[in-house]
Amino acid sequence: MKLLVLLSRFPYPLDKGDKLRAFHQLRHLAREHTVCLFALTDEPVSAEARAQVAPLCAGGLHVHPLNKPGIGLNMGLGLLRGWPFQVGYFYDAAAARQIEALVGSFAPDALYCQLIRMAEYARPFAARLPLTIDYMDVFSTGMARRAAKAPRWQRPVFELEAHRLRQYEAACFGWFRHHTIISDQDRQLIDHEDRQRIQVVANGIDTDFFRPGAVAADEPYDLVFCGNMAYHPNVEAAEWLALEILPAVRRQHPQARLLLAGTTPAARVLALRSEQVSVSGWMPDIRTAYASARVFVAPMRTGTGLQNKLLEAMAMGRPCVTTPLANNALHATPGQHVLVGQNTEELARHVSSLLAQPAEAAGLGASGRDFVREHYNWQATTERLARLLSA
């Protein structure tokens, strides 16, 4: 099958969840199908990144840069059309013309687009091609949760964006023959009467790459949290961890130290640096962050989707502590695969218990690794996607 794939970001390096999901799906789809990739980018794409992706694109690799003046204009035009900012930001008329030309020259048998950001590019071909959209997670719910916690002066903007996203997620449903999403929890949040038609295609984890002992730790820490540190739910989680949970842990473990690891840390994350809290920024190999700490903590309060950071930490054999919001998508058994807490007191108690009982912590880490090996396999999840694309 000849497959045209549309992405809102170039899928390498693997520093954001949508890029990681796209890269691994491409890697497996390319084994059986001829893939032509069209990817937008709002940042430079290195030769190394192209070299990682090009072998997966036997049908062609096309990268369309978005510049800041153009993005501003496109967002303004999108606003006039009633689009969410998430859609307007990524819609560029020149890119649409290029995709039209690709459909003519490549003649795909099917088109697959990731995220509602790319839905407008696929929309014109609804009568000509079988279209599949990967919602991945639910932007509208993430924005609504952010609005609820935003300063009062920002709240109307976030609430309007959440409303438009909700409407757009429902409206674009009808343009596509097939629909996928990362978890059942997210599927239930799509405001459409036929949402049960959306197929759950979970993420996977490379348990050969992410494994205990794969790398040496740079420096010992007690707690670690990883992720894109410019992403608002991660920023919020980092603040909760550093300002409330860690101090509660230090009442029992006065020497406890925290590492916040991940790309592009926001100013709010950088401000958390102290003798007890380190902020790494980009790391060439994120496995060293997981290997550095005794406990991985993901105190997610907002956001949607499946937390790849949890899959990676569990695959590395780290004992993990998280919140119900994150575990509802993961479906791990609390007390067996992860420890789950709803508030500062519960999360701190779990962390303190693991720090005080190394044998129990090791057992939880081993059980967590077994869980992700059994339930999160890229080949199995992408085979499910491939069957859908071929239907």
Rank of each mutant, 00 (worst) to 15 (best):
residue 321 V to N: 02
residue 321 V to H: 02
residue 321 V to L: 07
residue 322 T to R: 00
residue 322 T to I: 06
residue 323 T to W: 11
residue 323 T to K: 01
residue 323 T to P: 01
residue 324 P to W: 12
residue 324 P to G: 09
residue 324 P to Y: 09
residue 324 P to Q: 08
residue 325 L to T: 02
residue 325 L to I: 15
residue 325 L to K: 14
residue 326 A to W: 03
residue 326 A to L: 09
residue 326 A to M: 10
residue 326 A to T: 07
residue 326 A to G: 07
residue 326 A to Y: 04
residue 326 A to I: 10
residue 326 A to F: 12
residue 326 A to D: 05
residue 327 N to A: 10
residue 327 N to M: 10
residue 327 N to G: 09
residue 327 N to V: 11
residue 327 N to R: 04
residue 328 N to C: 11
residue 328 N to L: 14
residue 329 A to V: 12
residue 329 A to L: 08
residue 330 L to T: 12
residue 330 L to K: 04
residue 330 L to N: 08
residue 330 L to R: 08
residue 330 L to I: 13
residue 331 H to V: 15
residue 331 H to D: 14
residue 331 H to A: 14
residue 331 H to M: 15
residue 331 H to I: 11
residue 332 A to L: 10
residue 332 A to W: 06
residue 332 A to M: 05
residue 333 T to C: 02
residue 333 T to S: 09
residue 333 T to M: 02
residue 333 T to P: 00
residue 334 P to L: 07
residue 334 P to G: 11
residue 334 P to T: 10
residue 334 P to K: 11
residue 334 P to E: 06
residue 335 G to K: 04
residue 335 G to Y: 03
residue 336 Q to W: 03
residue 336 Q to Y: 00
residue 336 Q to D: 06
residue 337 H to F: 03
residue 337 H to V: 06
residue 337 H to A: 01
residue 338 V to L: 13
residue 338 V to H: 05
residue 339 L to R: 14
residue 339 L to N: 01
residue 339 L to Q: 11
residue 339 L to F: 09
residue 340 V to P: 02
residue 340 V to D: 02
residue 340 V to M: 09
residue 341 G to I: 04
residue 343 N to W: 10
residue 344 T to D: 05
residue 344 T to A: 09
residue 344 T to R: 14
residue 344 T to C: 12
residue 345 E to A: 15
residue 345 E to N: 06
residue 345 E to Y: 01
residue 345 E to H: 08
residue 346 E to N: 02
residue 346 E to S: 07
residue 346 E to H: 04
residue 347 L to C: 13
residue 347 L to P: 04
residue 347 L to H: 05
residue 347 L to S: 04
residue 348 A to T: 06
residue 348 A to W: 00
residue 349 R to H: 09
residue 350 H to N: 06
residue 350 H to P: 01
residue 350 H to A: 05
residue 350 H to Q: 08
residue 351 V to K: 00
residue 351 V to N: 00
residue 351 V to P: 00
residue 352 S to H: 03
residue 353 S to M: 15
residue 353 S to I: 01
residue 353 S to N: 13
residue 353 S to E: 14
residue 353 S to Q: 15
residue 354 L to W: 01
residue 355 L to K: 09
residue 355 L to S: 10
residue 355 L to V: 08
residue 355 L to R: 07
residue 356 A to Q: 14
residue 356 A to T: 07
residue 357 Q to H: 15
residue 357 Q to P: 02
residue 357 Q to M: 12
residue 358 P to F: 13
residue 358 P to Y: 12
residue 358 P to C: 12
residue 358 P to D: 12
residue 359 A to G: 04
residue 359 A to E: 15
residue 359 A to R: 11
residue 360 E to C: 15
residue 360 E to L: 15
residue 361 A to R: 01
residue 361 A to F: 07
residue 361 A to I: 08
residue 361 A to H: 03
residue 362 A to C: 07
residue 362 A to L: 11
residue 363 G to N: 11
residue 363 G to S: 10
residue 363 G to C: 05
residue 364 L to H: 02
residue 364 L to V: 13
residue 364 L to D: 08
residue 365 G to C: 05
residue 365 G to P: 03
residue 365 G to T: 06
residue 365 G to I: 03
residue 365 G to A: 10
residue 366 A to Q: 14
residue 366 A to E: 14
residue 366 A to S: 14
